[in-house]
Design a protein around this nucleic acid. Structure first.
Lengths: 347, 347
DNA sequence: GCGCCTTCTGAAACCGCTATCAAGAATCCG
DNA sequence: CGGATTCTTGATAGCGGTTTCAGAAGGCGC
């Protein structure tokens, strides 16, 4: 589908050299006299020749395409991570293909893997943020160069991680340190039995000897947080809430507000990710900043290492930084809580 | 990089048929006796054979890959549109490749086009939301199947559009109808000299005979809206603001709030897009709902029509629906404005 | 039972490029 | 100055499929 049916043979004819010589200047695989090189380059320019990636791939058994396999492409963390991978790949002359895996259903996972592998990609970056991602990773043939990107370290595959467990623990401990008796948790759909964020939260509570409430489940939709906020508002033991991500936190805050609770005066709410709108929300969200684009870039770099045949321990971890803003504060004293509660709810 | 070096020849040998026969069952291009067909299918399954897309492409000069060319991948509208294209493409067995064009710089545009075309794609979907997208569309060789996705209709290329001009006009008129003397406008980086949203806004003001303030320019960052909000707060003639997108609107509202102005009591603010957080914002945003994913799906469908050789007028337009929420209200009476202004700003 | 038309099927060519290899030209050395 | 190297270069053989094309088989009418 290239502009014209211009092939390497046309270029060779125009430049008065053989086909392999053109190939050599194209790939730089061997020396070519300056004169012929110039002639070839001129011919390429004049003919506006573009080598066919398919033919190259076939002949050389090498490819400049990488695939990103993900359960979603448009949600904040996913989109940012993809952006990071793409940027890094582009900088190195790689093209990126995207495969979406809808579910962890065997057929769907097999379809996605098939579609990806059929393209003769050089390597794969799997976004292991959710169950489909995990499933793909498990079913991928073992000899395919692959890097996993996620929030929790796993054995096996080379991977880049944002250590959400540690960050969640820190965030929860911070809330506890403020004087809250415990911290409730609203989680987003987990990638496995338990998310790193949930683990970190639980760990912090355990360490502090605080009671561990049952986590509440939100969907990826921010509005699901709102309903949970309504529910939370009816429970006077709720004074601090740790949400699986900022969007859910915003929903929860909204729900709490609907029910007349103020944040952070009545309830503290923290999120996760440092979404671009987190700082603009009222109140501005205390959260853990996740550098998704950076995760993507690190992931691609790792893939490059794998492709280069590196035998080192291919692993890169980074810890999200807790960002203190205004959605978390000390709990109000017991008496004050009662009092506030009897007052009609105001904006 | 396929799992094994399994080729069609291996399958043929295993099934006891010739190579072309295997190819025939693979592509369904010609009848094959049921017996051999079964044998081939069994062999394919046993060998876990996956035909090489590169080889197929080369031999058949056809491709099941489409490219999405976009100036960005992670911002809301872009990410959603990409999701829509990908979904529709996947449903039809197409694989999608992504090419990002950073700028409208000639070299960069040429690089992106080259990278895309080298992959022998079946067709291209260009996100014509910004200047780089427009530039790519202009420089693409004329014989490449391409569909443009955007907010303003253009001549030439087949395209799917979300008619933002009409929606912007409607939104602005609505504000005017509420009693505002004029509507200020904060625009996002435009794709051309003037955006559809800006045009619609201007048109509504003209029709109503209202003064046309100079538009203010925001970047894509929500926080840039905040600064503009601060500036807007100092101008008493500002009673209604139409923002280029919801995120900017949120920033503007935040900025207005910082300066002690309330929305919608003191100033009405409307956005554009109906971002998932728009309904959760305080106040919930009045905006125009843009179905980006739908745009993407329509775009892919159009591309399929182009590829099918359709000669009809390939064009699909949809009009965003105005969503009425609480960020827009009648202006307060003149006297009241004065009075409010003399009161110290409070949260 | 024979010629003619369908169906199936395999041999061979080819898609556009790279890898291998050997030949010819240029350069070097004692 | 002859033989040994070192460079360039083109012929040739694939890469893993698909696409003619023609032959082999089976079906039909008379």
């Amino acid at each position: 589908m290239s502009s014209k049916a211009t092939t390497i043979a046309d270029v060779a004819a125009r430049a008065g050299v053989s086909v392999p010589t053109v190939s050599r200047v194209l790939t730089g695989s061997a020396r070519v006299s300056q004169a012929k090189k110039d002639a070839v380059e001129a011919a390429i320019a004049e003919l506006n020749f573009r080598p066919s990636a398919a033919a190259r791939m076939l002949a050389s058994r090498r490819s400049q395409v990488i695939a990103i396999v993900a359960g979603d492409t448009s949600r904040y963390g996913y989109a940012e991570t993809i952006r990071g991978v793409e940027e890094a790949a582009r900088a190195q002359g790689y093209t990126v293909m995207i495969t979406v895996v809808e579910s962890q259903d065997d057929d769907e996972v097999a379809r996605a893997i098939s579609a990806t592998l059929a393209q003769s990609v050089a390597g794969i970056v799997v976004l292991k943020f959710d169950a489909p991602g995990v499933a793909v990773l498990r079913q991928l043939p073992p000899d395919v160069p692959v890097v996993a990107l996620s929030g929790v370290r796993d054995v096996g595959t080379p991977q880049a991680v944002l250590d959400e467990t540690r960050a969640a623990e820190e965030l929860t401990s911070f809330l506890l340190g403020l004087g809250h008796a415990t911290v409730h948790h609203v989680r987003v759909p987990p990638s496995r039995r338990e998310d790193g964020r949930t683990t970190g939260w639980r760990r912090a509570l355990r360490k502090a000897g605080a009671p561990v409430p049952v986590p509440l489940d939100a969907t990826w939709e921010p509005r699901s947080g709102r309903e949970i906020g309504h529910a939370l508002a009816t429970d006077p033991s709720v004074t601090a809430v740790f949400c699986g991500n900022d969007e859910i936190a915003m929903g929860v805050i909204r729900g709490l507000n609907d029910a007349g609770q103020r944040v952070p005066e009545d309830v503290s709410v923290v999120g996760f990710d440092d979404h671009p709108l987190a700082e603009l929300w009222s109140p501005p969200l205390t959260t853990a900043r996740q550098d998704f684009a950076g995760l993507g870039r690190r992931g691609f770099q790792l893939l490059l290492d794998v492709l280069g045949g590196s035998t080192e321990r291919l692993y890169s971890s980074e810890r999200p930084e807790v960002v203190h803003r205004e959605s978390a504060a000390e709990p109000r004293p017991r008496a004050a809580v009662r009092e506030a509660r009897s007052v009609p709810a105001g904006a």
